[in-house]
Design a protein around this nucleic acid. Structure first.
Lengths: 244, 244
DNA sequence: GACTTTTAAATGTCTGACAAATGAAAATTG
DNA sequence: CAATTTTCATTTGTCAGACATTTAAAAGTC
């Protein structure tokens, strides 16, 4: 691990990169303890403050965790699916909100990936997954539900569908596609009639998954994708009319 | 933005969270300048070092960028697809390598998602994407190519396929699934015969995409998924035999 | 007006210090 | 001896102040 004091980037960024590379390439293994801040400061010939800034960068990516006290220090963190899932959602949400991604593009990505899960979900679903899906459908039918809560329940329904595929890597990869869409979905005003239609389609999906038949689930998801884009189009048209 | 000095977590983590929330929820918009470190230190009633640690956390997630000099400071960064792509790949790679994910599980996730792209790719592919795919196929046929380079070319081929779908959000979501697999793929030893088989399947895929016919592409991808798992199984069996 | 110099503001880095947490070892107690 | 308490060294978390470096605007110069 070498640091170049004359490089363009910050010393803390260089140090963070050196340690990150060591972790990614396996020279530092999970739960291994890094040298203390003071030792690293000496090793890299920088101050402790600079080392700390580097460590905070790594902590932000869940690559290390720190513990105070004697025999404490910084340890290589075993990245959990939960942590990775959260990072994935945050990144996707920001990416979509900051890059003028059209609703159609985001929606297409989401439903394309989700439909890919449907056959696996139909094949492997457990009672728990079905129960989760049914519970969200019930929630979606409750009167007085705000649009935001309706959307949140929609996300929860689709998360259950993805989980039913029984592949944690797949679930992680889809996290951003499903949950990152929520801010866009929240912009839609759901009328009683559109909710009814969506709940019908969700019911079709749950029924198909329960019956372990992939095709109808895929069909309903396709229909849902079309309908969602249609609803969004209506909202945008309405908005364009009121602000010409 | 409020900070609790008695909370369990670090002050710098709390401050980072407060700023992150402001960005995610839109209270801070792209390119907006944050207060200077000294001002934030005063505002949050902490030292400048603590504020800096918080800012480094945000910089590690590409949420802010900093600029030195007068009228410099920390600015909300517009998360680019490129940056997000890189983060996604790093996270996926670490997640897979640290969590005893079976080759089958990772492979299933990858090919399930990739097959979902095939119809879109067949429909929308541009000459550039085809050229990229063909170029990688040529490279894969060169003698003397190391296994690692063969794998890297394999990833490049599949990246071109995903890009051919013409949906940047989809491409981003698939980044981890395709590239995060590489360390696992690198463990496979590719014989001349297995390379030939893979190149044949890649050619089938490229031909199908060129002909804008989705079904053969999907078929070849399925075959490739099966064959990859089979190859890996061979490697693991071999290893089990030599180290009983 | 075009060029150079100055200057103020901001981040980057360093030093030294103290607070707080924490587990191991030593001392104490029954 | 065993259980408990105390001490203590180590390490991270936080702070204050200083200086170096970068940068663009402002002032000065021809």
């Amino acid at each position: 691990m070498k640091i170049d004091p004359n490089a363009t980037s910050d010393l803390s960024a260089q140090i963070a990169k050196a340690i990150r590379d060591s972790i990614v390439e396996g020279r530092l293994i999970v739960d291994e303890r890094l040298p203390s801040e003071a030792e690293m400061a000496e090793q890299f010939k920088v101050s402790r403050a600079t080392v700390r800034e580097a460590l905070k960068r790594l902590a932000a990516q869940s690559l290390i965790r720190t513990q105070r006290g004697a025999f404490g220090g910084a340890f290589v963190n075993k990245l959990s699916f939960e942590e990775a899932y959260g990072q994935q959602v945050t990144t996707s949400t920001l990416l979509i909100s900051m890059n003028e991604v059209s609703f159609e593009t985001a929606c297409e990505a989401r439903y394309t990936l989700e439909r890919a899960c449907a056959p696996l979900a139909a094949q492997r679903r457990l009672p728990d997954h079905l129960a989760d899906m049914r519970a969200e459908i019930v929630r979606q039918g409750q009167p007085g539900l705000t649009d935001e809560r309706f959307c949140a329940s929609d996300v929860a329904f689709h998360r259950a569908l993805v989980n039913a595929a029984g592949n944690p890597v797949l679930a992680f990869q889809l996290a951003g596609a499903v949950e990152g869409m929520q801010p866009l979905m929240n912009m839609i005003t759901f009328t009683a009639r559109s909710r009814e239609r969506i709940i019908d389609l969700h019911t079709n999906i749950a029924d198909a998954i329960e019956a372990k038949s992939a095709a109808p689930a895929d069909e309903a998801l396709g229909e849902l994708a079309r309908y969602t884009v249609e609803l969004a189009q209506g909202v945008f048209d309405e908005r364009a009319k009121s602000r010409p």
